[in-house]
Design a protein around this nucleic acid. Sequence first.
DNA 1: CATACTCGGACATGTTTTATCCGAGTATAG
DNA 2: CTATACTCGGATAAAACATGTCCGAGTATG
Lengths: 158, 158
Amino acid sequence: MSEGVEWAVHCCVVLTSVAAPVPAARLAELHQVSPTYLAKQLQALARAGLVFSVQGKSGGYVLSRPPAEITLLDVVEAIDGPEPAFVCTEIRQRGPMATPAEYCTTPCPISRAMAASESARRDALRSVTIAGLAEQVEAGSGAGTLNGVAAWLGSTGT
Amino acid sequence: MSEGVEWAVHCCVVLTSVAAPVPAARLAELHQVSPTYLAKQLQALARAGLVFSVQGKSGGYVLSRPPAEITLLDVVEAIDGPEPAFVCTEIRQRGPMATPAEYCTTPCPISRAMAASESARRDALRSVTIAGLAEQVEAGSGAGTLNGVAAWLGSTGT
DNA sequence: CATACTCGGACATGTTTTATCCGAGTATAG
DNA sequence: CTATACTCGGATAAAACATGTCCGAGTATG
């Protein structure tokens, strides 16, 4: 899985507590990661419609929806792409012992099993929201943590 | 996910119906895939202990256990590696607003959610056995299909 | 004992991921 | 109204990984 997924999720979580747009460079500074590469991930989030990007002097990124309506699956698919990891190449229809086409109206058993596992993974990711993650962060690191981060994001110092 | 996973699973399924070792080249011919690259995947299966490799004139690969005791997860991990796709880099402990170490005794919420989704996927893959897949193939393509393939694998022609 | 056939690991190639840069556009300040 | 400074966005390199290939080590056969 892409490393950028982790960065993107962290960005979404901290963005839950801000109102004004936050520049990509500031988020990169907060997380100590490559500013230009993080910018790329945020662009992907914007393309997927999870965040709004506002340009100009005091621009940046803001969540486009309430955090409770953004799931972990949304973020993962925005970065890693929505295509399933396993793609059936219909091996059964190739070679000297190929299965006749009339027996291939349904996906092959292997493909079905892989699809089921992907579905399970997606369900698990879909059941977690950004709002839920933010809540757990507050529970684990003390109430007000995110507000402190938000204040730092809004300020100008380091 | 690696393309080789599909090849490896198909190989395991057809190997359920043979007793004598089958050379990698023959399996490649059956599936119309690159012989040398398939050999690589079979080596990985051997390293993982899922198949035995016998050398010499009439050598090849045989399943090392009853097909009912080989899960899809075993095969996937043998090829793609057992490491989880998501690795937490502890972003929360970096940067100017780093979470103090005393709050980091448990994995961060994001890491936990990712681990849960991976676990769901692994559970789904573990619930499917090679024997079960072989059964479904027979059910879908007609009883005796695998025996026919086994006969072809044992013969010398194309 | 010679031989032919097998696996096994070391060696190139192509594609995805990672990382970077500079131009297009906009709200702000004068 | 104009100039400016700051933002995003897509086009551009470098690195890592998956893909594909080759030849040598070893073993059952004849």
